[in-house]
């Protein structure tokens, strides 16, 4: 997997980011009893997975992958997930909130907030508790959103997975304080200092496999409230007279399909995606329907235990 052909030598900037991320991953394994990689199947967690394979070579991945499935993941994401986990021989844990499932929580009738809270945040907490994971590695970046800009690399969570902005520990010189008390956990973000460009640059240079949805293709699209929604199955009811139209689109972020807006694009290769990003004038999260719900929604979600 690591010996695949590369198109370019990494820039010193990417080399530095790569080394930092590898060091953070090793620190996690050296300091915690039972770490896990939160694998959301997006480009960021694909990069973290790639870095982890490098960090622990020639050994195997020393932690399992955890995917929180909401029942509304793009089918292509699930196929990609299973294929990738099999390729690298990783242990894959898939968890769906059984209570939410029983109550039939879904984004169409309950709205994005309730759906993400029950099937996302609650499900994540359940899975972490059930397996006793004391450190959860994620692909979040500081450049994504303002509440993230202040996030620590090792982000401390009090019992109940509570994130307290004032309780976060200063991080000096990369001398991370990884000590936790009973019931406490840590979230770990190896890509903290990466930007969206860095991620794509690195994916391009390292030829990292990502979900095909990131590349443009003709897809069945509904226009809903200004967003282009790809109708991935029959559960989204059509309005009277409405028909999905086939459009050339791609996705900039991954999420639940009814909540993730596509944009019109012809970018079919990584290079074309990079070129499109260079010219883009809207931010990455623009396509996420959940973030625009309410002001400071990310901070609120984080406090509740969202990744």
């Amino acid at each position: 997997m690591l010996s695949q052909q590369k198109t370019a030598v990494l820039s010193p900037h990417l080399r530095r980011l790569e080394a930092e991320a590898i060091s953070i991953l090793r620190e996690t394994v050296a300091s915690f009893r039972n770490p896990v990689l939160l694998y959301s199947i997006g480009k960021d967690s694909s990069v973290v997975l790639h870095l982890a394979l490098k960090a622990f070579a020639p050994g195997r991945l020393p932690f399992p992958l955890l995917h929180i499935a909401t029942g509304w993941d793009f089918r292509e994401m699930l196929e990609f997930r299973d294929r990738r986990a099999a390729e690298i021989g990783a242990r894959l844990i898939v968890h769906t909130n059984p209570d939410g499932l029983a109550r039939g929580i879904n984004p169409i009738t309950h709205g994005s907030q309730v759906h993400m809270s029950v099937m996302g945040t609650e499900a994540l907490k359940q899975a972490l508790d059930m397996h006793g994971f004391d450190a959860a590695i994620g692909g979040a970046r500081r450049d994504e959103e303002k509440a993230r800009a202040k996030e620590r690399v090792f982000s401390h969570r009090a019992p109940g997975h509570v994130w307290e902005p004032r309780g976060q520990r200063p991080e000096l010189w990369g001398l991370y304080n990884t000590r936790i008390g009973p019931g406490e956990t840590m979230r770990v973000f190896p890509l903290s200092n990466w930007t969206e460009f860095d991620v794509w640059d690195y994916i391009a240079a390292e030829r990292i496999p990502v979900v095909p949805l990131y590349f443009a293709a003709p897809r069945p699209i509904l226009r809903r409230g200004g967003a282009l929604i790809m109708r991935d199955d029959e559960r989204m009811p059509l309005e009277p007279g409405e028909q999905p139209e086939t459009m050339w689109v791609r996705f900039r972020t991954m999420g639940d399909w009814p909540l993730t807006g596509a944009h019109e694009s012809r970018a079919q290769t990584i290079e074309q995606v990079l070129e499109e990003l260079r010219l883009s004038r809207v931010s990455e999260r623009h396509g996420r329907l959940i973030d625009n719900d309410q002001e400071a929604s990310m901070e609120r979600k984080k406090r509740e235990g969202y990744f």
Binding site: K150, P165, S192, N193, T195, E299
Partner: peptide, 29 residues
Amino acid sequence: LLVDGLEAERQQGITIDVAYRFFTTPRRS
């Protein structure tokens, strides 16, 4: 408001934590 991220800060009009910003010009990042 581009950089003051946390709700508490916006309401108080002060910065209470370290925030990291990333930008790149043609000459340097």
